[in-house]
């Protein structure tokens, strides 16, 4: 579909450009960062609505990857490659500080005692590509640092990723610590191999995400006020 022109009518795209959108989506899905950046530059300079078409392509690629996840055919490597390509295109299209974070700010961290941050990094890539502003507190992160970051950044959600079981008690502390800081309304999402074995109730969080895309779907619903 063509993007509307400033007059509200669909703006005709130059010959060949209409193929660039699906081409960019395909390149993102292939994880081909270099070729995706070339296609994105071509797309964004072709029309006034070019940058919007690039964002649409990023979202389309993430949607396809998300569908793939739910059909149980996903793996970290493919998500990482698509995520890396999407981040490269996003950085190229929107240089530092100009990216439209349309979906709000979230804080993400791997709790203290756990240094396995691959899952967190993938979630960060996916959420960034889907339009969230993601503040990354890193790995081995104390609870106090996460809570401070949520307050400072005015985040609407705190996401924690844990691979090993000793982080479970720390995750359970998050809700009361947020409440003490006047942040009771902040959504809490847990994920990662160890935390996925628990229920949301057992962890005292709002949602246990099965993967990065499930996390994104939950956050999108939360932003829209859905339960």
């Amino acid at each position: 579909m063509n993007s509307p022109s400033p007059t509200g009518n669909p703006e005709p795209e130059p010959a060949g450009i209409e193929a660039d959108h699906p081409r960019l989506v395909a390149l993102l899905m292939d994880g081909d960062s270099g070729a995706a950046m070339v296609a994105a530059r071509r797309l964004r300079t072709a029309t006034e609505a070019g940058p919007i078409r690039v964002v649409e392509a990023l979202e389309a690629a993430m949607e396809l990857m998300s569908n793939k996840c739910t059909s149980e055919q996903f793996n970290l490597l493919e998500i990482m490659l698509t995520g890396r390509a999407a981040m490269a295109v996003a950085r190229d299209t929107f240089p530092e500080g100009t990216a439209p974070s349309t979906k709000g700010t979230v804080v993400i961290a791997t709790p203290e005692g756990d240094v396995h941050d691959l899952g967190k990094n993938i979630t960060r890539m996916v959420l960034s590509a889907k339009g969230f502003r993601v503040v990354d507190c890193g790995k081995d992160c104390p609870v106090a640092v996460m809570v401070k970051a949520v307050a400072r950044e005015e985040a609407f959600a705190l996401l924690v990723s844990g691979l090993i079981s000793p982080v479970v008690p720390l995750v359970r502390q998050l809700r009361p610590r947020l409440r003490e800081s006047g942040l009771a309304a902040v959504r809490l999402v847990a994920g990662g191999a160890a935390l996925k074995q628990c229920t949301a109730e057992a962890l005292n969080v709002d949602h246990v995400a099965s993967d990065a895309f499930d996390c994104a779907r939950y956050l999108e619903a939360a932003k829209e006020g859905r339960p």
Partner: peptide
């Protein structure tokens, strides 16, 4: 490191 190794595979 896992991230580097996975990217290196490609």
């Amino acid at each position: 490191g896992a991230e580097k190794a996975l990217f290196a595979s490609v």
